Amino acid sequence: MKADDSLAPPGATLVVTVRDELRRQILAGDYKPGDRLPSESRLTQEFGVSRTVVREAIAALRADGIVESKQGAGVFILPPSEAGPPVFRDVDPDRVSSIIEILELRTALECDGAALAATRHSPAQEEEILEAFQRLTELARQHRPTAEADFAFHMAIARASNNSRFAEVLQLIGSAMIPRLALSREKDLPAPPDYLKVLEQEHGAILAAIQNSDPEGARLAMATHLKNSQMRYRQQLRNGRLPS
Rank of each mutant, 00 (worst) to 15 (best):
R62K: 13
A63L: 03
D64E: 15
G65Y: 07
G65A: 03
G65V: 07
G65S: 06
V67I: 13
V67N: 06
V67Q: 05
E68K: 11
E68N: 03
S69T: 14
K70G: 00
K70M: 13
K70N: 05
Q71R: 15
G72H: 10
A73I: 07
V75E: 07
F76T: 08
F76Y: 14
F76L: 06
F76P: 08
I77C: 04
I77G: 05
I77W: 04
L78D: 06
P79G: 00
P79M: 01
P80F: 01
S81G: 09
E82D: 13
E82P: 01
A83K: 15
G84M: 08
G84S: 12
P85S: 07
P85N: 01
P86F: 03
V87E: 09
F88P: 13
F88G: 13
R89Q: 09
R89H: 08
V91N: 08
D92G: 07
P93N: 02
P93Y: 05
D94P: 00
D94V: 03
R95S: 14
V96D: 09
S97V: 04
I100P: 00
I100G: 01
E101V: 09
I102N: 04
L105E: 12
L105C: 11
T107V: 12
A108E: 12
A108K: 14
L109A: 01
C111S: 12
C111N: 08
G113A: 13
A114P: 10
A115D: 04
A118V: 10
A118L: 10
T119F: 07
R120N: 15
R120H: 11
R120D: 00
S122W: 07
S122Q: 08
A124H: 03
Q125D: 08
Q125E: 15
Q125P: 10
E127L: 09
E128S: 15
R135V: 09
R135T: 11
L139P: 01
A140G: 15
A140N: 05
A140I: 09
R141I: 03
Q142I: 05
P145I: 08
A147T: 02
A147F: 00
E148D: 15
E148Y: 04
E148M: 13
D150M: 09
D150P: 07
D150F: 14
F153L: 15
H154R: 13
M155L: 15
A156I: 09
A156W: 03
A156S: 15
A156L: 08
A158D: 01
A160N: 11
A160R: 12
A160I: 11
A160V: 13
N162Q: 14
N162E: 08
N162S: 05
N162F: 02
S164N: 07
R165Y: 11
A167L: 06
E168P: 05
L170E: 11
L170C: 10
Q171H: 12
L172E: 00
L172V: 00
L172T: 01
L172C: 03
S175D: 13
S175H: 12
M177C: 09
M177N: 12
P179M: 08
L181K: 10
A182Q: 12
A182S: 15
S184D: 08
S184C: 10
